[in-house]
Amino acid sequence: MDGRVNADVASRRLERSLAMGKSSKDKRDIYYRKAKEEGWRARSAFKLLQIDESFDIFRGVKHAVDLCAAPGSWSQVLSRKLYLPAVRAGVSESELPKIVAIDLQPMAPIEGVTTIQGDITSLDKVLEVLSHFDGKQADLIVGDGAPDVTGLHDLDEFMQAQLILAGLTVATHILKPGGTFIAKIFRGKDVSLLYSQLKIFFPDVTCAKPKSSRNSKAFIVCRGYAPPEGFEPHHLTRILEARATSHTAGGEDGTVGTMSWPNNVLVPFLACGDLSGYDADQSYALDDTKTRLGPVQPPTTPAYKSAIELLKRK
């Protein structure tokens, strides 16, 4: 675009963008290096730490569950925040915090964390998670699960919601009243129903999201677990379904929320931190002036590996 190269405007802009580029670069640099240095398996560890900064989620927490944990950076956070301090404080074996992590993918062991491989939406696996607690109750349940994205965006949103509801199932079994549940959400078309369903169990629900990311992914922070009176875990499906029915019945033709929102879905929004990792609206050049850093997260084998091999063989 030669027309744009009006020399001084360009150079001024360059100066500014350099100044800016530097700061944003440094930010990424810091977090990347920090993840490396501090030995986190994935940068998403900082997301949980950031949520902690805003919500102080670990206060008074002893036992915890990490749903959809692989490769395990959130479990690492749990281990370091809950388990290791207790070990250092000389807490006896039986009194040590219990941390259970589950994922579809296998996970390398983490100190003080029991890992399970399985689908959290399958009832058998939920029961297996529970079995590790033998009677104890958890104070914190976190879930960073993300389903396979198909591109059929309503199906993706539904599957994401299924993971959250699976988390809620676990919560209804073992979350201590007053406990906290944190999960990744997709702020799509039916998020209001999800808010409304979560509000049955948690009086305090907040949507938290890094400021600069334009992604519709965010985290839902639900505090003060208080199931309805006389609630039994096996009521869950029925209660959720009833809420779904009444939610859609609220608006003509299920267009709930086109005039204003019913009170039970109003969830405050909180911009927390700035740790989106990088800005999706920008393309970046690989920085080859410095030595290339290895991946933080080891690549998993893609599902189509064999298919590619078959093609090669042709």
Binding site: G21, K25, R28, Y31, Y284, D287, L293, P295, Q297, P298
Partner: peptide
């Protein structure tokens, strides 16, 4: 993914 940070060149 996982290639480390990158900067606008």
């Amino acid at each position: 993914k996982g290639c480390g940070y990158v900067e606008p060149r």
